[in-house]
């Protein structure tokens, strides 16, 4: 009964919420572009935008020593999660069967384990830093904590179901993923998509002024 609900209607509901939420959010940003800048430009806004989307992956040299923990933990978490999401064998199989119709080479089991170790350690450090550092503690909201914990739970249930033999554990993972998908468009998690227009806007602004940002 619960199983049918989680695998069926709730799954589709969460997908609808997730995708429509993202399309709505991104649409309201992309299709409502601000008016044209009338000042005479010194450089190209477009190339600035494209450049900044990529340059912000690296921290400024002078800044790096002060934010080393965030950089390292942030990369550990994001890269680990990315690997888990797109290169874990069960995920590829799932995508192939339900969405894409084609698959790609999954990473070996040991790589999966290492990726998840990275992701867990990274997320744990980031979340603890959020609580323990006065700056991030002051600016963090309930949303930030819910998003962190939800992501952690999704990863945890996924890894607990690693043996792939207990339906209950698989369902738990599926259910937490569904909650995650539903929560996603209404929260801080949207940064996974909105970081692109944000960087592009800033990059364009600086690009017109001939500054690399």
């Amino acid at each position: 009964m619960i199983m049918d609900f989680i695998d069926g209607p709730f799954w589709y509901f969460s997908l609808i919420v997730f995708f429509s939420g993202i399309i709505w959010n991104m649409g309201s940003i992309v299709f409502a572009l601000s008016k044209v800048d009338l000042s005479v430009s010194r450089g190209s806004a477009v190339s600035g935008a494209i450049k900044t989307i990529f340059t912000r992956f690296a921290a400024d040299k002078g800044m790096a020593p002060h934010i080393r923990l965030q950089i390292i933990a942030g990369y550990m978490f994001h890269l680990g999660l990315f690997a888990l999401l797109f290169f874990a064998a069960p995920h590829i199989l799932f995508l192939e069967e339900h969405f894409l119709g084609f698959g790609w080479t999954p990473m070996p089991h040991w790589a999966f384990i290492i990726a998840s170790e990275f992701a867990f350690l990274g997320l744990l450090i980031l979340w603890l830093h959020r609580i323990l550092n006065p700056v991030s503690r002051l600016i963090s909201t309930a949303d930030d904590h819910i998003a962190s914990i939800l992501t952690f739970v999704v990863m945890l249930t996924g890894c607990l179901a690693l043996l792939e033999s207990f339906t209950a554990l698989r369902l738990l993972h599926r259910f937490s993923v569904e909650l995650f998908l539903i929560y996603f468009p209404f929260s801080r998690l949207m940064h996974a998509f909105t970081f692109i227009p944000s960087r592009a806007f800033t990059g364009a602004w600086f690009g017109r002024r001939g500054i690399s940002s």
Binding site: I29, Q70, G74, R188, M190, H191, T194, P197, S198
Partner: peptide
């Protein structure tokens, strides 16, 4: 766009 992408990293 800015506000929805801020992750409060500090």
């Amino acid at each position: 766009s800015y506000f929805s992408s801020c992750v409060h990293c500090g």
